[in-house]
Design a binder for these strands. Structure first.
Length: 292
DNA sequence: GGCCAGGCCTCGC
DNA sequence: GCGAGGCATGGC
């Protein structure tokens, strides 16, 4: 029987992360269980209470993949405590989003996903990402422990597929991407695959770049503008000073900040604050009701 | 069936 | 440099 591991983690809410819109293959199963597909693996997380969580993977896999993925090397309570107490909106947002962490997601998958994301709803983005994975990705085994150990529940699907690599997408044409429901972004996706295959864009290259250099290089890709570039910086390259402004954040800034949020107040963590705001505005009931 | 979606590109000024 | 218009398709 395969193994699983239990960890005690402060400031960690898998379900809030799943609903925070930064990842498109993260699913809430029930009140205590979430699942995610990333880096060619299926992972299920069970909340056991008292800040303890069961992960459906071995200790080795946890430390080699998921520890970094969930940014467990950062003290989020310190981030939370750094919030300006006079900023009531942000304080409320952080209370509501307590437990959200910024993921370190795969660079290529994140780039492709956020190119798809422009001018589309999150459910619709998920559909396209899933369809691309099913067509071009590899089958993923759900760890046996998910079925064997009582702490876990049934996965949401029978079969899972990894998000394909640039190589696995090398034959995909814009027509192929168009069939995945990506619309006019299909051409951008084909060009992005080429950028990765040619090595013009790569994780190793970006590691050496400053935030602004990385931003400039991302924006040079067709179909990648300011907002998408900032999302890639934040949700994959972990440049947590990046502050993506989409229609939701735009509304928040206009409603509560006079149209301008001073990111220099949080030079290394503005992106984390952004994520609290985004989640709060979308998921808090009073805000939902205000939108009818 | 209409409206909007984690925006970007192109064009005209 | 900046604003307006156009854009493929899916969810609700």
């Amino acid at each position: 029987m395969s193994d699983y591991c239990i960890k005690k983690i402060e400031f960690f809410s898998p379900s809030k992360i799943a609903l925070s819109g930064q990842a498109f293959r993260f699913t809430v199963l029930d009140e205590a269980h979430t699942e995610v597909v990333a880096f060619g693996k299926y992972l299920q997380i069970a909340a056991l209470g008292n800040d303890e969580y069961a992960f459906s993977c071995t200790e080795e896999e946890f430390s080699s993949i998921w520890f970094s993925y969930f940014n467990l090397d950062r003290d989020y309570i310190a981030v939370y405590n750094s919030i300006d107490p006079d900023d009531r909106y942000l304080k409320n947002a952080a209370d509501f989003g307590y437990g959200i962490r910024i993921l370190r997601q795969d660079f290529f998958e994140t780039t492709m996903s956020y190119i798809i994301s422009q001018r589309r709803s999150i459910p619709s983005i998920k559909t396209s990402v899933e369809r691309i994975s099913e067509k071009y990705g590899r089958k993923i085994e759900v760890p046996a422990v998910v079925f064997e150990a009582d702490v876990f529940v049934s996965p949401s699907k029978n079969i899972y597929y990894s998000f394909p690599s640039p190589e696995e997408l090398s034959e995909a044409t814009s027509g192929g991407f168009s069939d995945m429901g990506t619309g006019y972004r299909a051409e951008y996706l084909e060009l992005a695959v080429k950028d990765f295959l040619m090595g013009r864009i790569s994780y190793d290259l970006f590691r050496e770049l400053s935030d602004s250099e990385a931003f400039d290089k991302l924006v040079s890709m067709k179909g990648v503008g300011k907002k998408v570039a900032n999302c890639i910086l934040l949700f994959s390259l972990h440049r947590t000073g990046a502050f993506p402004i989409d229609v939701w954040i735009e509304r928040i800034l206009n409603s509560y900040y006079g149209g301008f949020f001073d990111v220099t107040l949080y030079p290394e963590t503005a992106g984390i604050m952004q994520q609290f705001m985004f989640y709060y505005e979308r998921e808090d009931d009073t805000h939902k009701m205000n939108r009818k």
